[in-house]
Amino acid sequence: MLEYEEFCLRARLEGATVDAWVAAGWLIPERTETRRGFSEADLARAQLIKDLSRDLGVNDEGIAVILDLLDQIHGLRRGLRTLSAALAQLPANARADLRRELRDRSE
């Protein structure tokens, strides 16, 4: 866990910027009773937001949309990964049935 000051320092962001991003829900620090803690994942996410706004010229509205869609994609990808792992455990004939079904549908 990173303290607030350390997070700002490593993310190379002003405190006010971090506050605004937290307020917008773009960053969700873990809250304890007395302070907010940031993770390495939060740091990478902050870097992404920085890339979007500074390098790619995306405005705030655009960033909100991108983050929302990205969060959906990651949710989907996790679901797909879990599904894929579960399918790998099925008996060979069930997998063959499934493959046939998928092939029929993709035609």
Partner: peptide
């Protein structure tokens, strides 16, 4: 971070959304 399976991804999980499906 978002790709890490299971508990290892811990921190990024809280951002994930299942609204899309």
């Amino acid at each position: 971070f978002a790709q890490r399976p299971g508990a290892a991804s811990g921190d990024a999980r809280r951002y994930e959304s299942t609204e899309g499906f």
